[in-house]
């Protein structure tokens, strides 16, 4: 990936974050360009989730700069809300709203944040529900769906806000094996349509298939980042090699 794609949509410069005295992120530098798809992997505790949670400020950083779509993340709450409405996020545990139907889960953001008329919001919601192959469940409650279905609803919920970039925080880690595929398929379709994505995952098959770059994080730093071909066939660092040997069996 070169700079040909113009301005980066996310720019992270020398990012540091501490939880109390624990130094989680130690100087992260990262540029993500429009339509670029990045997979972040690494052992647990390496700071990969924290990193993407900083991008929509679910976690506050203490040092360095994060610029999303030209807006720098500061404590300005209006800016934060603006950025959050442009950045979609999919969580490990789905975090659907259990008291609302699937359809209401999807229309909530467009209606209340985008001030869209209800009818229009519902049309958009149905469109995205069809896209994640779950339109027939629109009037059920999340508690009545399987994990894989819930995660696809969660993806559709983010898409309804027409995000400029999507963050995935281990989207398949809480799923039963037979449901992982249905979620990954939706993500692959999304990738093929040119969505900008940052995905924290250990699904290396997914990384090989859609990622432009794979980043390996350990101990709060990005140890190495490369195209999937290079990354998997020719890892440079010892730690990367060790990690890959453990996860690829």
């Amino acid at each position: 990936m070169t700079d040909k794609l113009g301005e980066p949509i996310v720019e992270i410069i020398d990012l540091h974050k501490w939880f109390g005295n624990f130094h989680v992120l130690k100087g992260i530098n990262l540029k993500v360009y429009r339509q670029e798809r990045i997979v972040i992997c690494g052992p647990s505790g390496s700071g990969k989730s924290t990193l993407i949670r900083c991008i929509n400020r679910l976690e506050e950083h203490q040092k360095g700069k994060i610029i999303v779509d030209g807006i720098e993340l500061t404590s300005n709450i209006k800016n934060i809300e603006k950025i959050r409405s442009e950045v979609g996020m999919v969580f490990q545990h789905f975090n659907l709203f259990p008291h609302l139907t699937v359809l209401e889960n999807l229309t909530l953001g467009p209606i209340w944040v985008r001030k869209m008329p209800k009818k229009e919001a519902e049309e958009i919601a149905m469109h995205f529900l069809e896209k994640v192959h779950i339109a027939d469940q629109a009037h059920k409650y999340p508690g009545q769906l399987s994990g894989g279905q819930q995660q696809r609803v969660a993806i559709a919920r983010s898409l309804c806000m027409s995000p400029k970039i999507m963050l995935f925080d281990e989207p398949t880690s809480a799923l039963d094996p037979e449901m992982i595929k249905e979620v990954l398929d939706v993500m692959i379709e999304l990738a093929q349509e040119g969505m900008t994505m940052i995905v924290v995952t250990h699904e290396m098959g997914f990384a090989k298939k859609v990622a432009h770059r794979v980043l390996f994080m350990d101990g709060g730093t990005i140890v190495e980042g490369n195209t999937p071909e290079e990354f998997f066939s020719n890892p440079k660092h010892e730690r990367t090699k060790l990690f890959l040997s453990q996860i690829l069996h």
Partner: peptide, 18 residues
Amino acid sequence: IPKGQYEAAASLGLNYYL
């Protein structure tokens, strides 16, 4: 109420009141 509910609401851009 689990923390995830606050985070999901925040990630949609909802403010505190909403």
